[in-house]
Each structure stands twice: as structure tokens, then as C-alpha cells.
């Protein structure tokens, strides 16, 4: 069995992309760290022939769902500061625009796009993580990409 450090080195970026596609940045960082702590706990008993990437994305998916639930329960303040005031950098860059567009997709499409195109999972593996059939996962991913192409390019045209 490889040292867990190699697993982090190989799949850290994929898991980060999956988390960022589904969550705000601070939440994505938390989900990334929690995913790898959970994975490290279970790692010694992982079967030798397991698909490590699919296993990690499935753990990340559970963390993302947990975060969504917690966020919905979080009280929303009445006087919200203007959003631009909370941006840490000089302004949203190209990547932020793409992530924003991703986050406006319906849950199923967003997760299918993130796990297939960012996480590198096959449609069959996406179906295992999300539930439903392989065909449904393929369709959700294709619909998501279509919608993404539309909204993302509109957004870029406005910048």
C-alpha cells in the first residue's frame, strides 16, 4: 500500500476542484481537509484494487452534502454587507466566474459536471456516487455542460 502522502499528491487537486465546484471557497477548503482526514482514517483497510479517485470523490460528495445542510440551517443576517466588500482579492477572476456559473446549475447537473469533468469519474462512477442510472448521470452532465456554456459565455460577455 502506497504512503498516504502519495495519495494526497496524486488526487489533491482533483478533490479541490470537486469541492470548489460545489461550495464557496472557505467551505471548499474545509471540505477538502475533512475529506482527506476521513480518507486517511479509512485508508489502511481500503481494498488493494479500489479506485482511489472514485473513493475520494465519494467521500468529498458526503462532505459537500453535509456542508449544504449546515449552510441551510445557518441563520441569515438581515443587513448583509455588499458582496464586493467581502471579496478578498482585487475582484473576481476568470476562475471565480466559472465557479459562479457552475454553482447556478441545478444540484444534480452541478454534481454530475463536477465529478465527471473535474473529478475524472466515469458516468458509471458518478451514478454510484449520486444514485440513479449511468444514463441519467450522462444526461445530467451533458445538460450541465450545455447550460454552463450558455451562462458562462453570457457572463464573460458582460465583463
Amino acid at each position: 500500500m502506497k504512503p498516504f502522502d502519495d495519495v494526497v499528491a496524486e488526487h489533491g487537486a482533483t478533490v479541490l476542484r470537486v469541492c470548489r465546484a460545489a461550495l464557496a471557497q472557505a467551505d471548499a477548503d474545509d471540505a477538502w481537509a475533512e475529506t482527506f482526514v476521513s480518507a486517511m482514517r479509512a485508508y489502511p483497510s481500503l481494498p488493494a484494487d479500489a479506485n482511489v479517485e472514485a473513493w475520494l470523490v465519494a467521500i468529498a460528495h458526503h462532505k459537500i452534502i453535509d456542508t449544504h445542510r449546515a449552510t441551510r440551517r445557518r441563520p441569515v443576517p438581515v443587513d448583509v454587507l455588499p458582496e464586493s466588500g467581502t471579496e478578498p482579492g482585487p475582484g473576481p477572476g476568470e476562475h471565480d466566474a466559472l465557479y459562479d456559473a457552475l454553482k447556478r446549475l441545478p444540484d444534480k447537473q452541478r454534481h454530475a459536471v463536477a465529478y465527471h469533468h473535474l473529478g475524472g469519474l466515469s458516468h458509471r462512477e458518478v451514478a454510484t456516487v449520486l444514485g440513479g442510472t449511468e444514463a441519467a448521470a450522462r444526461r445530467a452532465s451533458a445538460d450541465g455542460i450545455k447550460a454552463l456554456r450558455r451562462t458562462y459565455q453570457q457572463e464573460r460577455a458582460h465583463r
Binding site: G12, W32, L98
Partner: peptide
Amino acid sequence: PDEVLASLQADESVVIDRL
């Protein structure tokens, strides 16, 4: 969109080191 998604890889390594 696939090419756009691929461009996300560029700024990740700094974040990964911190994480």
C-alpha cells in the same frame, strides 16, 4: 467548456500546499 475547466488547474498548487 472542457478547455475552460482545464484552465482551473493553473492556480491550484499554492492552495494545495496550504491545504
